[in-house]
């Protein structure tokens, strides 16, 4: 069974952490993964940096720009991940935009993901329909789950469709927002979480975008199977460096 599904089956209150590969330094990728695993994080999203990350806010735009300046490339990331699976069993997801993947070749990319021990992908600008018609069989051939996003504007009908074709979790965008935009959840958001929960979807839900501290994490896991933290973690990395990863996680969890 795919490592993502295993974690989803076993537990709720999942904590997933996003970071940008190659940030703060080019060679930090694997040590960040190992530290996150050591302090009990359940799942990791490795951001493949892109020059024009449309769905991301200033924090991730900045970490991506820095990572690219450091020399991060798709090929480089796969090189860095080589051998990592001997050391960790944590589910690994690559989050990246479609253009770099297209230039690498979708099939070559998926193949190298499997070789590197990647379990799934999140590609915000690859719409569900295009994935379903053109790429689903390739992803499946290499045992990669593809996670889709839903937002407060996604209609019930579309959510049902997404639920049907999802094999991992549904990534529930917390609000009308790009990443990194909010500090606390408002009433409408809680209402939206409740609306989705009432739909009794078969896919687990993980909430992301705007989870920045213990409070928003707790609010999120009340309404879902778990939460993804990105921008807040990147800010922490930028300020305190790779050595202090556990401080951040402990503040969220304890």
């Amino acid at each position: 069974m795919n490592r993502i599904n295993k974690v989803l089956n076993k537990k709720r209150e999942i904590l997933s952490i996003y970071f940008t590969a190659g940030f703060p330094d080019l060679s930090d990728t694997t040590s960040i993964i190992k530290s996150l695993d050591n302090c009990g994080v359940d799942m990791i999203e490795i951001g493949l940096p892109f020059s024009d990350p449309l769905a991301d806010g200033p924090t991730i735009q900045e970490s991506s720009t820095k990572a690219l300046k450091n020399g991060m490339t798709t090929k480089k990331l796969f090189e860095q991940l080589k051998g990592l699976r001997k050391e960790t069993n944590i589910p690994l997801i690559i989050m990246g935009y479609f253009n770099p993947i297209m230039q690498y070749g979708v099939e070559s990319f998926c193949k190298d993901c499997e070789l590197a021990g990647i379990d799934g992908l999140i590609i915000p600008d690859l719409p569900v329909e295009i994935y379903n018609n053109n790429y689903k069989t390739i992803f499946e051939k290499y045992n990669l789950l593809n996670m889709f996003l839903i937002t407060p504007q996604t209609s019930d009908k579309r959510i049902r469709f997404i639920d049907e074709i999802s094999s991992g979790f549904i990534y529930m965008v917390s609000s009308f927002s790009i990443t990194g935009s909010v500090n606390s959840f408002k009433k409408e958001q809680t209402k939206y979480f409740e609306r989705i929960n009432k739909m009794n979807l078969s896919s687990p839900l993980i909430i992301g975008f705007g989870i920045s501290n213990k409070q928003t994490y707790l609010d999120a896991i009340k309404n879902s199977n778990g939460a993804i933290i990105g921008s807040a973690f990147i800010k922490h990395l930028k300020k305190y460096g790779v050595g202090k990863v556990s401080d951040f996680i402990n503040k969220i969890r304890n």
Partner: peptide
């Protein structure tokens, strides 16, 4: 052409 957009833009 086409529309390679994040889900956040889908409804609009």
């Amino acid at each position: 052409g086409g529309a390679f957009i994040p889900e956040m833009m889908h409804a609009n």
